[in-house]
Write a protein that binds this DNA or RNA. Structure first.
Lengths: 204, 204
DNA sequence: CGCCGCGCCTGACATTTGTCATGCACCGGT
DNA sequence: ACCGGTGCATGACAAATGTCAGGCGCGGCG
């Protein structure tokens, strides 16, 4: 371990960010070179500091961790990305890997394993939470068509059909139909439940 | 600072818990005497270790941080409680203070201030996020009657009226009426939206 | 005491939502 | 070129949801 592994830390919760920094700072072979709190600052920081590994939270203001991952992979392929997230929505994992992430850790994992995950990712290995991987497999790809997804997304906040229709320039009947299809496919019996299920599976 | 401040740490996310532990462990005048990951273990741990300050997350499996606070205050009044939470739902603060918490910190606050917050709480002061306090004041007390709250809570998961009615042994008309009242009072135009608004204000 | 206000409950009625059958356009395989 | 499958769009109909007016019991107050 001649030179330490250079780390970038991105999490919108300052307290968590600082705490992770303290935790990883205890490891002699890790060095934190940047800490940021918004997704749209990730690329800039990566360009400037060229870290070996970027630790990104999924939920961030500005730009979510998945999109940030895509940017980083495209612009600075030497930097590997390790996603850290609060809750293990099955679909997050799939999307993260598709975006080019090398690892995916939920915040439920013991603190002692985080440093190891960083080292593995740095070594070129993939790190994935096994339980979450299983969930992801059963969740499968989104069964929703693009349009259905769009309509469901627009209905997320509880807007009336008429409002959604206006937003998407559709007739009310069409909106209802897409919603109905989504309800059927998600196994829900209700648009609210359909939204919840889809969100949990990362289909929105 | 003859004897260090003895701390208990409760957060369901192991990674965050460990990270906070590392962060606070750096302070010479703080000593972490217990770390737990579930709300229903808090009281037991407090009884055993008698910490000066208990750092509790609001969202935890088993028993939420608010209820845990009540227990601790009732059983071990010498232990002061500092609530730490992910998202600053206005109503959480009110409920936390009512339950007897001495402080309330959101995870957005800078890491450097956490240790200070702990010290202040230990000194008998109250620590409250100022921005959140303002939000809480505008949110005000819940306008919902007990029954309305109960019905809205039962409808949270998108259950049909008939199901809710059965669950609470009410007629469907009654359920609809309570729901309607809640919708009106929350300014929503929809039960889904009413649920969201109420949750954000901590009225559920 | 009698009155008023409030919370709770209920059924009737209007509105919104969910389901279904149908038509159209596009794509890939034969 | 034809055909079957799929996604998108739409209106008619059925079911669930939201609104309203009204009844009942209780506690506070003149």
């Amino acid at each position: 371990m001649s030179t330490p592994i250079r780390l970038l830390l991105a999490d919108d919760q300052a307290l968590v960010r600082g705490a992770l920094s303290a935790l990883l700072g205890l490891e002699p072979d890790l060095e934190i070179v940047a800490e940021i709190g918004a997704g749209d600052l990730v690329l800039e920081a990566v360009r400037e500091h060229r870290p070996d590994v970027a630790l990104l939270d999924v939920e961030m203001p500005g730009l979510d961790g998945i999109s940030a991952t895509e940017q980083v992979r495209a612009e600075v392929p030497a930097t590997r990305v390790l996603i850290v997230t609060t809750f293990g929505r099955p679909g997050y994992l799939r999307r993260a890997l598709l975006a080019g992430a090398s690892g995916f850790v939920v915040k439920d994992t013991p603190a002692s394993q985080l440093a190891d995950a960083v080292r593995r990712v740095h070594a070129g290995l993939r790190v994935v939470d096994p339980a979450l991987a299983a969930d992801t497999l059963v969740a499968g790809d989104s069964p929703l068509t693009p349009r259905e997804t769009e309509v469901l997304r627009a209905a997320r906040d509880g807007a009336r059909v008429a409002v959604v229709a206006k937003r998407l320039h559709l007739s009310e009947g069409t909106v209802r139909n897409h919603l109905s299809a989504a309800i059927g496919k998600t196994g829900a019996d209700n648009r609210g439940a359909a939204v919840r299920v889809s969100e949990e599976n990362g289909w929105l």
